[in-house]
Design a protein around this nucleic acid. Structure first.
Lengths: 244, 244
DNA sequence: TTATTTGATTTGTGATCACACTTGCATTGA
DNA sequence: TCAATGCAAGTGTGATCACAAATCAAATAA
């Protein structure tokens, strides 16, 4: 029988792209991740297996396994009733998440700053350009694209840190803070955009100069900003709740 | 109908302990975690759903979901053939794991050092005593108990750091380094025991003195030791492989 | 009107089945 | 003798079903 590996000597196989072997469960998992990081679900929202299966046009089986995986990485929460929901936002949890992100993403960007080659640096520089372009073109806020670009920019850098252990942890942290961040961006998108652009430019410049400390500091400022905004919003709401 | 929550005014309910509502899947997951952290599986060992289901005396359903969860936290590895195995040990991966553990567990113990109350401190002090007792009694090595005590000691401290985000990450790191550690302990248990005891005593003393830096340094030395041993062993094997 | 109960619907969990793919071994051919 | 072929057992994946627990709504009683 033909070998499964593409033979380099075979002129036909050279023309053929390998056909993916992704399972349905993998697609469901990726889709839910995307939705979570993008903040498509609201905090405290309850998700049902059959509901998601209908929405994703599949059976319950791949969905329940994907939900189980998301629960283990704390992207979702299993209630004692055995229903599953997006974790609610609390001040303590936000501070906890921010501290962990500063610690781990800070380490990753410091590593990346000393390891990125010129090709990788030019990629993130061009991403900066795409960003400016988008902001100039569209005056109304396009939060989805904003979130996607931001994610692509950061992970392009983290990927360069070369740690197969840190990167999944960072993904888990983004998964956990996704719903919070979305709320913050919605509330303060205009106020924060200019700062974001500034921090990102500082990051790129620091990496190009292989200045790990400067890169880390700029990153800390960048990821702290939405948390600070959200914190002030939550505190205002809590105060309003007290007086009511 | 009776409320599900225990009524404090009910004299009967006060006598009753809440009956757990653990699912079969949860038990399978916990059991596999225990086996992984304890190093009961060898690196590169392939696991089959039906095989585990037979061993655990359950059907395939809870096992496959537990395996999926362990794969997402990188405690197991999904091969392109769709079979799943314990990740093999490589030098790069070991260094990567150690760096992450130093970063995150170091932060956790520094936090704990400033937060542990006298009751919590006395608990870890008594664990030190249990340890000495065991070592005095049994001359032959009891690796299982050694690993269990070590885990209990460390996590008693980490729990006190009060971070619901960091602790699951540390659990994931232990899950990933479990198989490696077991190999190291087997190879070097006699050589390392006295060092382990010394580092643990230093940790307890530093925490009692609320000296975060000292506690972190001692922890780094403690968790680095098995990795250093294992590294030298792997390098020796690699050299032997070269000459053969 | 309000609190409680009863019944119907929804939901998660585990078992079983069907199917496709992989793996290992024996057979066949040169 | 050795490589290629073909068959059989093993394995993961997804669908479906049965059952128990939870939820919600209507109906009943105070």
């Amino acid at each position: 029988m033909q070998k499964a590996t593409a033979e380099k000597s075979d002129p036909i196989a050279a023309q053929l792209a390998p056909v993916g072997r992704e399972t349905v469960q993998d697609r469901v998992y990726s889709e839910l991740r995307r939705a979570l990081i993008g903040g498509l679900f609201e905090p405290s929202q309850v998700l049902t297996i059959r509901g998601l299966a209908d929405a994703l046009m599949t059976s319950t089986m791949p969905v329940r396994e994907a939900l189980g995986r998301l629960i283990t990485e704390k992207a979702l929460e299993a209630l004692p009733n055995r229903s599953v929901r997006v974790p609610p936002i609390t001040l303590e949890r936000m501070d906890d998440l921010l501290r962990a992100r500063i610690l781990i993403e800070g380490e990753a960007i410091a590593l990346a700053a000393t390891r990125m080659n010129s090709r990788q640096i030019s990629i993130i520089e061009s991403m900066l350009g795409d960003w400016d372009e988008m902001r100039a073109l569209k005056h109304k806020k396009d939060v989805d694209r904003e979130v996607t670009l931001n994610q692509a920019f950061h992970f392009e850098i983290y990927r360069a840190c070369g740690s197969a252990v840190l990167i999944p942890m960072i993904e888990s942290l983004w998964l956990q803070s996704g719903p919070c961040i979305r709320v913050a961006i919605y509330a303060f998108s205009d106020a924060g955009e200019v700062d974001t652009a500034h921090y990102h430019r500082t990051i790129v410049k620091a990496i190009a100069a292989q200045d790990a400390k400067e890169a880390r500091d700029a990153l800390v400022a960048d990821i702290s900003r939405p948390f600070t905004f959200l914190r002030s919003k939550l505190e205002a709401e809590a105060k309003r709740g007290m007086s009511a």
